[in-house]
């Protein structure tokens, strides 16, 4: 039964991919008017950004008056868990981004799996990533809903859905240290989500919202390759297991405006009582 759901999800996302590809050749014929890599990658929660931090940048290369879209697949494999994400986003006018992601969390060692759906929206309020003195500033929301709530409920979570709010600022320096182009992003998030929300929202230890800091810094070695680090503060709401901050060290490749690939070494700390969860992260995005 589980296999069927999983298979249909995968099949579904492939259908979406095929649909977007067909659609794009018809209506997104013009190339986006923003510069290479300014669309960033896709985060685990569907929004445009780094790997684990949503950025103030909007996904795709859609500039003024343009529509853009992305589809993405991501996998995170750490010692005792595996997270699979299928996501898509639509952006307009370099102003608004709507995103959707399906996360499946495979509890390899413990057994079973968890999953949730995330509907996101992001609006650019002011500034530009590259030009002018002001950083690009955006606000966003992510509505998260658990598909299977039995386990999160059993370990002390208080709710099966919640909304994360965040504000992000991003800035690029074309001629930064070592004469390389650098990008930095700072995000402040208000959230009750346990392990992204996969273990529900709020808990028996703490049931209020936390302000969490998330940051990314990347350096472009040349036009196409970037290396960087990300850090994401996490809440700690459940008594049964401590939740720790996330970190990753990534390499991103932007061969053109239609494809990006991100590989990373991730340290997700302790998850559900299993310590030192480190491993790899791989994400592929197609943009139109």
């Amino acid at each position: 039964m589980k296999m069927n759901i999983r298979d249909s999800l995968v099949y579904g996302s492939h259908s979406i991919l095929a649909g977007v590809l067909l659609f794009s050749s018809a209506t997104f014929a013009d190339q986006g008017t923003r510069l290479l890599a300014t669309g960033g990658a896709s985060t685990l929660e569907g929004a445009g950004g780094g790997g684990i931090v949503p950025w103030a940048t909007l996904s795709s290369y859609a500039g003024k008056g343009q529509f853009g879209a992305t589809v993405n697949l991501s996998e995170v494999a750490v010692d005792d868990f595996r997270l699979s994400v299928q996501g898509a986003s639509v952006s307009w006018n370099n102003r608004i981004e709507l995103s959707y992601a399906e996360q499946t969390f495979d509890l390899s060692t413990i057994g079973g799996e968890l999953s949730q759906s995330i509907l996101g929206a992001k609006v650019r309020l002011a500034g530009d990533l590259i030009y002018g003195d002001l950083p690009q500033i955006s606000v966003g929301a992510q509505h998260k809903k658990n598909n299977d709530y039995a386990l999160p409920s059993a370990v002390g979570s208080q709710d099966d859905s919640s909304v994360d709010w965040y504000v992000s600022a991003a800035k690029a320096w074309l001629d930064g240290p070592f004469h390389r182009t650098w990008v930095a992003n700072l995000t402040l998030r208000s959230s009750k989500a346990n392990q992204l929300g996969l273990l529900g929202f709020g808990g028996d230890k703490e049931n209020s919202r936390d302000w969490l800091t998330e940051a990314s810094v990347a350096a472009f070695l040349n036009r196409y390759w970037a290396v960087g680090i990300e850090y994401r503060q996490k809440p700690d709401n459940l008594n049964f297991a401590e939740e720790q901050d996330w970190k990753d060290l990534f390499v991103a490749y932007f061969p053109n405006k239609h494809v990006s690939v991100v590989g990373a070494y991730t340290d997700l700390g302790s998850i559900a009582g299993l310590d030192d969860q480190t491993g790899w992260y791989l994400s592929v995005q197609a943009a139109f």
Binding site: I130, L174, D175, G176, F178, H179, R180
Partner: peptide, 15 residues
């Protein structure tokens, strides 16, 4: 690339 970035860094403020 270092020279490209220096030039772009000098021209971008003209935006």
């Amino acid at each position: 690339v270092s020279a490209q970035n220096q030039l772009l860094g000098l021209l971008a403020p003209m935006h």
